[in-house]
Design a binder for these strands. Structure first.
Length: 214
DNA sequence: AACTACATCAACCGCGGAACC
DNA sequence: CGGTTCCGCGGTTGATGTAGT
């Protein structure tokens, strides 16, 4: 349907944000809240398009954002969530407090994809060495990686637009849905560690609930 | 020290879909 | 009900940093 004419790039700044721009954006949002991205730049005195402002706020300026140092636990959770949800970065980010979809997407594409590929390659090598019975756990896990069925439903916006300006926290549309439907994660670490049967139950529950939502 | 290749990640782009008129 | 506007998402790009030669 209607494609956004978006920012008619004329006269608009692009590229990296300066600290001055950051502070202008942050202070404007602190005063007026999120939303109205289209008109925000003008009101805030920024020569940026609304999309750019939104991205900057969501990924860097929003309070509570964690940058870098993705722990092994978080990494594991990302892998498991990706297996469950596919490239639904915003949903995955919604389960990782303080992490943004952009960061997770980048991390996946740069670190995890490589890591998983080498792990799978190593497992394949093992399989070739002793092909008769694929009993090795490593082979199984690599097969799991290959064969794992990723359920990737179409994204769906659920929150109404008027929600967007009520509070800073309501910005993440999909997580907003999930937060209400999924068990809230007090301690994300509780979700990790596949060997743990509690975690396995948890994943089944999560998956079932996710299916219900669709 | 200079150059090249590769890795990383912030930012941009285009699209789909909900909300609005 | 159909067209338009706006938002949010996922994919991609390109600037910058780092390692290797």
């Amino acid at each position: 349907m209607g494609r956004s004419p978006c920012c008619s790039k004329v006269g608009l700044r692009r590229g990296p944000w300066s600290t001055k721009e950051d502070s202008l954006l942050a202070s404007h949002i602190q005063q007026h809240g999120e939303g109205q991205w289209r008109s925000l730049p003008k009101k805030a005195g920024l020569l940026r398009c609304g999309k750019s402002c939104r991205l900057r706020w969501m990924n860097y300026l929003r309070p509570g954002i964690k940058r870098g140092n993705i722990s092994e636990d978080e990494e594991d959770l990302i892998v498991r969530l990706h297996r469950l949800l596919g490239n639904r970065w915003s949903l995955i980010a919604g389960r990782l407090p303080g992490r943004t979809d952009n960061e997770i997407k980048n991390y996946w594409n740069t670190h995890l994809l490589k890591k998983l590929n080498t792990a799978a390659a190593a497992a394949d090598k093992k399989k070739i060495k002793k092909p008769p019975k694929k009993s090795a756990a490593a082979a199984a896990s690599s097969q799991e990686m290959k064969n794992s069925k990723v359920y990737a439903p179409k994204p769906m916006r659920v929150s109404s637009r008027s929600d967007s300006d009520d509070s800073l926290g309501s910005s993440d549309c999909a997580p907003e849905v999930l937060v209400s439907a999924w068990p809230e994660v007090e301690d994300p670490a509780a979700l990790y560690h596949s060997s743990d049967s509690f975690a396995d139950d948890m994943w089944e529950k999560v998956y079932a609930e996710y299916m219900q939502l669709l």
